[in-house]
Amino acid sequence: MSQEIPIGATTIGIVFKDGVILASEKRISYGLTVMSKAGKKVFLVNDRIGVAFAGLISDAQAILRRLASEIRLYELENNKRMSIRSAAKFLSNLLYAQRPFPVFTETIIGGIDDEGNKLFVLDQLGSLLEDKYIALGTGGVLAISIIESEYKDGMSLEEARNLAIKAMKAAISRDITSGDGTDIVIISRSGSKEEFIPMK
């Protein structure tokens, strides 16, 4: 989405009828060198909240550790689940606190709570926007065109999953900094899971 970020990636999020689906490809490239084919950019924070990143992996991992522990702490102290909106707002504040020296990541946070199925996107500085579908990273522009042309409100899990895979395949095939398979996180009313889909 943003061209300032030096490291490529494709990361998407889609809201469907019973939850949200997040997906990222696994390539970590520095310039034209593939540093790793096993990068993990999408995570289940707990069974109801997921995050997905595009950008510098170290920054993403540091943010994830902080976010996951703060959510856990909140839930223990207050004895209730944190809403997705609250988690997103916390993340927004976390990122904005580093406004003078920002992280090099863009983040999708999504999940399910009493408010419904929620998906938010944050840029490097912590701007917070809600949407029904999101694509980030250098391959994001390729992925979003696929998602936008086929997205419908109230899609089933199967439809959303297929759309996510189709969008990731399109991005991987035309963005050289994305590739090596796709990690998918599905958060739905009938349970949450992570899966890996090999792609060429």
Binding site: S92, L95, Y96, R99, D123, L125, G126, S127, L128, L129
Partner: peptide
Amino acid sequence: GLVADAQM
């Protein structure tokens, strides 16, 4: 302008 600044 910059969304993050404005929102905060």
